[in-house]
């Protein structure tokens, strides 16, 4: 395993660390590495690093490694970690913030999951609401798996669970404005 030179890494990580602290409102130094977050995390089995290890990377300023991890994308935002943390560290919020920063930096370890969220928000921006059929179709086409879950389609349509056309709200101008205003304030959507 490669040896990490910690002082250089710390200096290099400062800028991103400051962003994480500011945007999440969480001081990573509060974490005492007990691992309760990872012990109860329902997605830990699929992660390349446990949530505790992500917190450790942040504590040491090893931000690139944190931002490149799959963990931050696999986090289901279920809040189990934050709920049980004995130091009241909002770990889920840190994961969320790291994801946002990773995306901003174009360092996306789970491209397909990211695509889903992009399409989701596109749908919200266009229609004011999510058009689930459009979202799934788009996701499958862009995700190069056009037939994924297709077998649900007919019965869903039949049960009235999927509408072929999006529900668009009348006041959608307002929602579009929300997106525009967030962009104006620096939001990268």
């Amino acid at each position: 395993m490669e040896r990490i030179e910690l002082t250089a890494a710390w200096a290099k990580g400062q800028e991103v660390l400051a962003e994480v602290t500011k945007e999440s409102g969480v001081r990573a130094s509060k974490c005492y590495q007990c691992g309760k977050c990872s012990a109860g995390c329902p997605v830990a089995f699929a992660m390349d690093k446990t949530p505790r290890e992500i917190m450790r990377l942040v504590q040491l300023g090893l931000m690139d490694e944190a931002l490149q991890s799959h963990t931050i994308w696999l986090c289901a935002s279920c809040d189990t970690c934050s709920t049980r943390c004995p130091r009241e560290v909002d770990i889920a919020r840190v994961m969320e913030t790291l994801r946002i920063i990773a995306k901003r930096k174009g360092s996306v370890a789970e491209k397909k999951m990211d695509l889903f969220h992009d399409l989701f928000l596109k749908s919200v921006e266009n229609n004011g609401r999510v058009h689930e059929l459009g979202l799934i179709l788009g996701f499958n086409i862009y995700g190069m798996q056009p037939l994924k879950d297709a077998h649900f389609g007919p019965s869903m349509l039949l049960k009235g669970k999927l509408s072929p056309l999006p529900h668009t709200i009348k006041d959608n101008g307002e929602v579009k404005k929300i997106f525009a205003n967030v962009r104006k304030r620096g939001g990268k959507l």
Partner: peptide
Amino acid sequence: RVSKIYEKGDKLIVWGEDTLLGRP
């Protein structure tokens, strides 16, 4: 630190992380 304990049959399932291994 252990995160969860639940009963399964007559056993108690204990979930932790071995933080030295970095594995649940």
